[in-house]
Amino acid sequence: MSDSLLTGIDDAQVLDANIALPYTLTTGRAAGTFLAGLGDKRILASRCDTCARTMTPAQDYCNRCGEPSGEFLSMPETGTVTAITRTESVTLALIRIDGSDTDLMHRLSSGGPAADVGTRVRAVWADTPTQSMLDLDCFTPDDSGAEPGTPSPTGDIEPITEIPYAIDLAYRHSYGPHYGRLFDELATRRRILGSKCPQCRNVLVPPREFCDICFVRTAQHVDVADTGVLQAFSIIHMEFVGQTRKPPYVYAEIVLDGSATRLIHTVGGHDVDTLKERLSIGMPVRAVWKDAADTRGTLDDIDHFAPVFEQLP
């Protein structure tokens, strides 16, 4: 294939994939104390004694000299906008809290009087704290003309040490010229496709544009068998988040006949103890396909690979 593949027509077919993971994040002393303070409707700063700076929000380390911060201070709820932007979903601002030497980033209220650089603002507190930066719901313009407050010592505050968190990232992966054909063939003909390197003559599964070793473009797609040999296997007893099969089961790396690369799948058809005893490296295996009615055009259309014990001497 030449560079002409780069002028190929757009293919709307994509694989939807999600990466969703749970976390328990450790706040550290300053963020933990700051977030605890928000729950108590207080804005906390930390003090760098080396630089004589008051940092809001509180930081464990001075972002100028890198030294650990000293005492926490309870700051006024008022300040002045130093920068502002309105996006589709939120109005963000940098706010110089009265008595602070650094700016705090936060939200501004969406309704009400317009704010600009220089606008005096005051904190609006969320009704129910959730151990989040948004326990301070937002800032809103303050036209009371009240004198700016001053920082004061905090007294003891028990920091929040851990915060539950989650990531959920969505992807639309392109099939591209090789996987597109591979999965079409799987779905329509139940054939597994490889690509053949014109230089080393090896057949690579799944098919790919370049031979990894020769760095030449593969010349053609070829069918490989749904039989192969067991190159490596292990027995999965462990359960973990995101697992798609119920342990115990046999994880296997299989080299399909006619190919030179490995395919990741499972070996089944017997109980796990039998497989542990009788499987060996180099043993022939064959694909056991699911019912045609269940075809999805993925590797999962193969229910498992079955060992071919009878072919052993």
């Binding site: 027995i235 995101g242 990741i264 590797l299």
Partner: peptide, 25 residues
């Protein structure tokens, strides 16, 4: 999430499963 999302992630076994398979070999 190391595994190719198209090819093998559905059988993913972290890093331990394939390390064990290599050891078995």
């Amino acid at each position: 999430t190391l595994y190719d999302p198209f090819w093998g992630r559905e059988f993913a076994v972290g890093i331990m499963g394939f390390s064990a398979a290599y050891w078995r070999a």
